[in-house]
C-alpha cells in the first residue's frame, strides 16, 4: 500500500504538536482511522492535525518506539489461540524500557505508555509494555505482587483462607 500523505501532525493533550511520518503512524490504528475519517484525497491536501489524548513526554517515547519498529509487519500478528508468554521481549525494547522505567519513577511512565498504546491502538507496543508489567510480578510472592501493583488486600479472613487453600497448587 502506498501512503501519499507522508507526514501527519499530532497535537498532544498538553498542547504540544509534533509532525511524524506515516511510516510510523501506520502502526497506530487510532491515527490511521483519524486520517481515513478526514477523507483526504490522494494528492495530500493539507491535513488538519490529529489530536491524541496523550501528553507530549509520553508521545515522545511512543514515537521513539515506533521509529525502531517502523518496519514491523502489518497487520500486527494477533495470537489469539496461542500460549502467551512474556519472555520474548526484544533486546532493543528491553533497553528502551530500562531507560525510563527506573525505581524512582515507580512505574508511572510504564503506565502512561501502556495507556497511550491502548488509546492509540498500537498493538505491538501494548503487548510489549503489558509483558513488561507481567514480568514484574511473575514469580513474586503474593505480598510482593500486592506491593508492585500497589493494591490492598480486601479479602475477608475466610476468603483469604479459601484462596490460600486453592493456591497450595501454585506455591511450589
Amino acid at each position: 500500500r502506498i501512503y501519499p500523505l507522508m507526514r501527519v501532525t499530532l497535537t498532544t493533550s498538553d498542547g504540544a504538536s509534533v509532525t511524524v511520518s506515516r511510516q510510523l503512524t501506520k502502526h497506530s490504528g487510532f491515527i490511521e482511522k483519524a486520517i481515513t475519517d478526514m477523507a483526504v484525497d490522494d494528492n495530500a491536501v493539507p491535513l488538519s492535525a490529529v489530536a491524541v489524548d496523550v501528553d507530549d513526554a509520553t508521545l515522545k517515547l511512543v514515537i521513539e518506539w515506533l521509529t525502531e519498529h517502523r518496519d514491523d509487519a502489518l497487520p500486527y500478528p494477533e495470537k489469539t489461540d496461542e500460549e502467551r508468554r512474556a519472555d520474548d521481549i526484544p533486546a532493543w525494547d528491553q533497553a528502551f524500557v530500562q531507560k525510563w522505567d527506573t525505581k524512582e519513577d515507580q512505574q508511572q511512565t510504564l503506565y502512561a505508555v501502556i495507556t497511550a498504546a491502548d488509546k492509540l491502538d498500537i498493538k505491538g507496543l501494548l503487548d510489549m509494555t503489558c509483558k513488561t508489567l507481567a514480568n514484574k510480578i511473575n514469580g513474586k510472592t503474593v505480598e510482593e505482587m500486592r506491593e508492585i501493583l500497589q493494591l490492598e488486600c480486601d479479602f475477608t479472613e475466610e476468603e483469604l483462607a479459601e484462596i490460600r487453600k486453592e493456591n497450595a497448587w501454585c506455591e511450589n
Binding site: 512474556a86 501502556i114 503489558c130 507481567a134 493494591l151 490492598e152 497448587w169
Partner: peptide
Amino acid sequence: LKSHVFSFLPIKDRLRARVNKMLY
C-alpha cells in the same frame, strides 16, 4: 488491560496474582 497483563503470566502466577477482589 488488566486482563491483558494477566494473559502473559504463566498459569501458576496468574492464579497467585488474584491478590484482591478485583483481580480475583
